[in-house]
Simulated assay, not measured.
Amino acid sequence: MKNLLTLHQFSTRFDEAISAWGGALLLLVLRVYVGWQFLHSGLIKLQNWPGTLELFHTEYHVPLLPPDLAAYMGAGGELFLPCLLFVGLFSRPAALGLLGVNAMAVISYPQLFEFECPAAINDHFYWTILLLVVVVFGAGRFSVDALLGKLAPKTTA
């Protein structure tokens, strides 16, 4: 009977180790995937900057911001914040920032809801869910955030 209990304890520790490493790997893949979606969009904006400015003047109606400022802020967020996600540095603030960029994209381009193919708006919903996972769980073990957490001095209350 004692051997059976010991086997169960080993199995529990093994399961915890696998799920912890598996979860960390999943968070890494998730961060890279969702970050790439935004980085790719930012790179496309840079490839045709005059066209991007034109779109912000005619198609995208960002509330409360002048079109040129909205274009610079949107492209800047799409280029900078994914890099933070890739390395896992300030992951939660970066994910929150990308949530803002994503929300602005949906708000400023209501035609997304009118397309016959719902894939366009659904992508924004999926990205929101993936970014919320990073906000809730953090970057995981494979990140600069985790490394900095290990190096930070421990305080006792």
Rank of each mutant, 00 (worst) to 15 (best):
L130G: 04
I44M: 06
G138L: 05
L69R: 04
G35Y: 01
A146Q: 10
G42C: 01
A105T: 08
F125H: 12
N3S: 13
L30P: 10
A95G: 02
Y60H: 12
V29T: 11
Q9P: 06
G138V: 03
L132G: 05
I129E: 08
L25C: 11
V32L: 15
P153H: 07
V87Q: 00
L46E: 05
G140H: 07
W49L: 12
F38S: 08
E16C: 08
L27M: 15
L98K: 02
T128V: 06
R31Y: 12
G149W: 04
T128I: 06
L46T: 03
G42V: 00
F38C: 09
S108D: 06
C117G: 02
S108N: 07
A139Q: 09
M73F: 10
V135Y: 01
P63D: 04
R141F: 14
G88H: 03
K2V: 15
L79Q: 00
A120F: 11
D145W: 01
T6V: 14
T6G: 09
L26C: 10
A146H: 13
H8R: 14
R141A: 15
A103G: 12
A139G: 15
A103N: 05
L99V: 03
T52P: 11
W127Q: 10
P153E: 09
T6P: 02
V133N: 08
L64E: 01
P93F: 00
A71N: 09
E116L: 11
V135N: 06
L84H: 02
F115C: 05
L81S: 00
G35F: 04
I18V: 15
A70K: 11
E59H: 14
V133M: 13
L28K: 10
W36F: 10
A152E: 11
S19G: 09
F137C: 09
V134N: 03
A94P: 04
T58Q: 15
L26E: 05
G42I: 01
M104Y: 00
V144L: 12
F86N: 00
L28E: 01
G22A: 10
G23F: 03
Q37E: 14
A120P: 02
F80R: 03
F80T: 07
F38V: 02
K2H: 13
G100F: 02
D145L: 12
F56H: 13
T155Q: 12
L65W: 07
Y109P: 05
A94N: 00
D68Q: 15
P67S: 13
L85A: 05
L132Y: 01
R13G: 07
F90A: 10
A157Y: 11
A119N: 11
P66W: 09
T156S: 15
Y126I: 11
D68T: 12
Y33M: 14
L151E: 09
P153T: 12
E54Q: 13
F86W: 04
F142L: 15
G22H: 05
L39K: 01
P50L: 08
L64G: 08
P153A: 11
T155H: 14
V136E: 03
G77R: 05
N48S: 15
E16F: 04
T58C: 10
G138N: 08
G35I: 05
L132W: 09
L25H: 02
H8I: 15
M104D: 07
K2E: 14
P67T: 06
G88S: 02
H40W: 09
L4F: 12
S19K: 13
L132R: 01
L130E: 05
D15M: 11
L89Y: 03
I129L: 15
Y126E: 11
Y60K: 13
T52A: 14
